[in-house]
Design a protein around this nucleic acid. Sequence first.
RNA 1: GGCCCGGUAGUCUAGUUGGCCAAGGACGCCGCCCUCUCAAGGCGGAGAUCACGGGUUCGAAUCCCGUCCGGGCUACCA
Length: 481
Amino acid sequence: MNHDIVRTRIEPAPSGSIHVGNARTALFNWLFARHHGGSFVLRVADTDAKRATEENYQAVLEDMRWLGLEWDEGPEVGGPSGPYRQSERFGLYDEAAQKLLASGAAYRCYCTPEELEAERARAQSEKRAPGYSGRCRHLTPSDIETFEAEGRASSVRFQVPEGRTITFHDEVLGEMSTELGLTPDFVIQRSDGSPTYMLAVTVDDLAMNITHIIRGNDLVASTARQILVREALGADGLPVFAHLPLLVDDKGRPLSKRWGDVAVRAYRDQGFMPEAMVNYLALLGWSFDDRTNIFSTEELIEKFSLERVGKNPAAFDISKLEWLNGHYIRGSHPDAIADALVSFCVRAGLPADTEEGVSILRRVTPLLTERMKRLTEAPPMIAFLFGGVEPDDKAAKALDGQDDYLRELSDRLASLDEWTTTSIEEAMRALAEERELKPKKAFQPVRAAVTGTLVSPPLFESLEILGRDETLVRLRRAAAK
RNA sequence: GGCCCGGUAGUCUAGUUGGCCAAGGACGCCGCCCUCUCAAGGCGGAGAUCACGGGUUCGAAUCCCGUCCGGGCUACCA
């Protein structure tokens, strides 16, 4: 087949927000296609009607877009090989199944689930391989007639040829080969007429001219079976395979076994930026050299190659993601961060979605960007700008015995000609010097009185944004206690 | 059980044809500096018997064999 025009694909199952392992696979496919000027296809694997809800389907599209992985062909953008939801391609799969049935590459299996289960249990207790025996391979016409008369449902199984060895090249793992002796005949079409993964993936990769199949290492073992189906369907040549190392959690367990908390959506809600997510994901199983960690999307496209994908499983480490996120927050335009912060503030109970709220956010965000690792850290730091704040325990302690000082300070601030960071700072430093107070000693009580905590954005700037009136109110109230 | 994949510091990794590696970078951690707090930034530090055991070689993280550990597949899931 022609590999010059690169075509890759991602095939997420709509089981809710896509999890980071799939996101990483999607990213690598996307980067590879972009790097080679090829096409990236999105195909939704919703053949399992039980899990594929419309809501989950929408979540997949939304996650992909949030990550910035725009697809060239797929749902909503269309393309020459559509439709791109497997649930809408059943006719194609059935056609393929019929073709394989007609050529003798596949046969009808009338075994019931109960029979298969019994067979499996027996094999297990006798410590034999639990695979299907292939007993429906050579049913006589009268056997079939009997089964049909009984109303037994039938699935379609692929007849695995014996004594063959399938070999293929894997860009990550090298030359691979599988002896077919241990591969049982596998189902390609369920008794309800729906295709299994083996059929659907093969038919679609063929129909969509996919040249490079980049996917998780968990699919290595299924490659030989897909090659078999491919051949039986009359395809010549093979796509290039690349099996990516699996992602594991901090205890070394596969990430795919733990849904929900590892979903892309969860990270978005926890205040991570898509740029950070993409950069971090790229570092999992791929490296450019011995020192570079930070890559813009453009750099990733330029530098990405399958040769530099490693073989060993990678653990998802939230602290490195946080570091990158902080980096991208600092590098973003403050206004963009401010806008993104609105929803996080609202969710935290701060009325930031008003004109005034947005204005406050825009003014305070520049003070925030270099001290955030996650967007969710902002609301607690700026709550004092959205309402009075009761001092916490530490702040209350810092306020002890400061009445006179705070009163004096409030008088001085009240008489300032203008209310700017500079004028506030000058006044506060002057008073501190007169009283021979070290800066920290002088400023922490003020911070406590105004923000209710001992940790906040820079003080003088914060006071300027809070405004003179409210600052004085808070200082005097603290002094009066 | 069988087949397959993997194993460099807590984590991501560099290390492609053996010597420049008594193993480099990054996150995290610890300390110092800066400093109105917290961060950011700067500087420094601890942390890896290169899973283990044998070989081959003047020399191995890098080659060979074995062992152990982890994982995947072995479904009418994908």
